[in-house]
Design a protein around this nucleic acid. Structure first.
Lengths: 360, 360
DNA sequence: CTGTTAGCGCTTTCAT
DNA sequence: ATGAAAGCGCTAACAG
């Protein structure tokens, strides 16, 4: 198998050069596919490399180049199918452009997020995409710093005052459509069971709206859409019908129970994430209530089992892959040097009508 | 904000040293927290670093150290909640030990997997965990190579002839338990709807068993467990009741339809992954058949909505986080220098009995 | 305790 | 077309 490298450990390009009887630079050129090398020399170098089992050291190359040809992705929850889909979209697109993608998870923890960004920056990624755990109005020094170093694009969640590209769903429009569908069926008591915690719920519409600024933008926009739809239908806002709980199944259950036990109970429910949907479904099951027949229901995220439920659930489907693709393309363009003002791309979600909406 | 770095671009440790009026090495020691530095010097260095907005360059540090304090994880499908959970377990444990984790996705593509491993190796990760897309008997040169360079542990799926640590579920035992539960309820026509494609299904038990060697180990072990349970109950193996389709909802539907339309139809079904379960459920829904009452059902992976289904579904729950934790601990130990023979850790899955099993 | 010096493995002028 | 040498930013061994 040829004699081992002179030094212990992995063979370096010097070892290859020595084995092939050429200079380091020539070996590097032959292997790296840049510069000009004679066919004969290239052959010798390639043979030597194969014989030694040479593998280039990306650390050294990147240090020299100052770039690593990789994208860093920071997501709040990799176990969420939503983000998993988005990541897939990003990876596929980046890969096609010859960049690798590494992803770090933060579990919705802002400190972890700052750390993740730091790690990626230290690794000299060429671009960064982050689905931040921060509320829209929260200070995000780590993101400002990052944006100053490399192209950064925000996905799914935006923060104010950070001048970077972003790609999100049009959450307000989606929530508006979902709520409107419920209203059109004749419901007047439409409850909202959502994620981000914000308690107690402000009693006036105006105060709720301004309180939303500090929440994660995705959830906040959904509440805004809900409020818009109510107003358009001249249905008064009732704080008892808005649960701003933390994002767990249990919290959603409690909220649902409360809304159903009101003197003037909710007859329809809009859920803004998976946990909320699960919580609602569990309560309905326990009470022997059927979606559509007894309580109408529209949920965010068209999970694969929604259409198999009995009855099939009306859901709001989000274009996960498209989201990822768009993000990657924006980022790639910036890396390629594009330098126009930041864009805020907003993709439409789709209301998939099935049978969980019935008359009041 | 202090004068910028001498050179253009990001400030380096030399810039910091110059600004603080000390030697490079001292600056490095102060910032790196190693070696000994006087409090006074440390203060000056830290101030200078803060003023310049200094951030260490991990590429350079790692090149120098030969290690990157990071773990590389390559999974076949990040959108699968199973892997998402495992990754979470790994990340948490690694993080606690001070290592970062980066994950790459392969979409069940063996070439992508080889590439991912290559990328990670080039980045000088300290350890590698891979959930391979390869069948148990497939040649996996990329994994052998990798194992020669850094500690490697296999998760969820094993390959023969690769002497490395592995952590999996005891899939055979789990499938055996699930099948046995169906058998004990009196069923004699138990169908198996699973993932990995292997067609046509060998008509003899023996040939099926040997054909399984080329499949992904997880699926293969589940089929083995199924076969074991049948034999123990003296129920003959019928190839018509084993669907070795590709892992899609549609394929599972077709398989289910076929089994239900047999002259002597299946009265119970075991599904080995999410897609299969979805396919089965869709067919039952279309035919107006109820799990438990009309067709009994046991599925792998205790998805959160299983207990909310009507009736609640009996499922096999896998300890995702524990799997990840175990993997990370094994890997960390190897990185720390442990050098005993490879271990094959097998964690038990749990049959969660609910109401989708009824009498024949 | 602190500064000097020599690499880590690769790319890239700059001569030849 | 090829080789020599400098440098990417950091750590580490060695003097002082």
């Amino acid at each position: 198998m040829g004699s081992g490298p002179a030094s212990s450990g992995r063979p370096t390009i010097s070892d290859v050069a020595a084995a092939a009887g050429v200079g380091r630079a020539s070996a590097a050129r032959a292997l790296g596919g840049y510069g000009a090398v004679s066919p004969e020399l290239r052959r010798r170098v390639e043979e030597a490399a194969a014989a030694l089992g040479y593998r280039s050291n990306a650390l050294a190359r990147n240090l020299s180049l100052g770039s690593s040809r990789t994208l860093g992705v920071v997501v709040a929850d990799i176990a969420n199918p939503f983000f998993a889909g988005v990541v897939r979209g990003i990876t596929d697109t980046a890969r096609r452009a010859g960049l690798d993608t590494v992803v770090l998870n933060t579990d919705e923890d802002l400190d972890d997020e700052a750390h993740a960004v730091e790690v990626l920056l230290e690794k000299s990624v060429d671009g960064l995409v982050v689905a931040t755990a921060a509320g829209a109005d929260a200070p995000v020094p780590h993101l400002h710093e990052a944006a100053a170093q490399v192209p950064l694009v925000l996905v799914d969640r935006v923060v104010h005052g950070l001048a970077v590209d972003s790609v999100t769903i049009d959450n307000a429009a989606a929530a508006r459509a979902g709520t409107a569908a419920l209203l059109e069926a004749g419901h007047r008591r439409v409850g909202l069971v959502w994620g981000p915690a914000l308690q107690p719920v402000p009693a006036q519409r105006g105060r709720l709206l301004s309180a939303l600024d500090s929440a994660v933008s995705t959830g906040a926009d959904r509440v805004r859409g809900y409020l818009d739809a109510l107003r358009a239908a001249r249905v008064p806002f009732d704080p008892d019908l808005v649960a701003l709980t933390e994002s767990t199944v249990e919290a959603a259950q409690d909220a649902t129970d409360r809304m159903l036990d009101l003197p003037d109970p909710a007859t329809a429910l809009l859920t803004t994430d998976d946990f909320a949907l699960l919580g609602v479904l569990r309560v309905l099951g326990r009470r022997g209530l059927r979606p559509g027949a007894d309580v109408s229901l529209v949920g965010f995220d068209d999970v694969p089992w929604a259409e198999l439920w009995s009855p099939p659930l009306t859901m709001i489907a989000q274009p996960l892959l498209a989201l990822g693709t768009e993000v990657a393309e924006l980022l790639l363009a910036r890396i390629g040097g594009r330098d126009d003002p930041p864009r805020a791309v907003r993709l439409p979600a789709q209301l998939v009508r099935r049978d969980s909406i019935g008359p009041r």
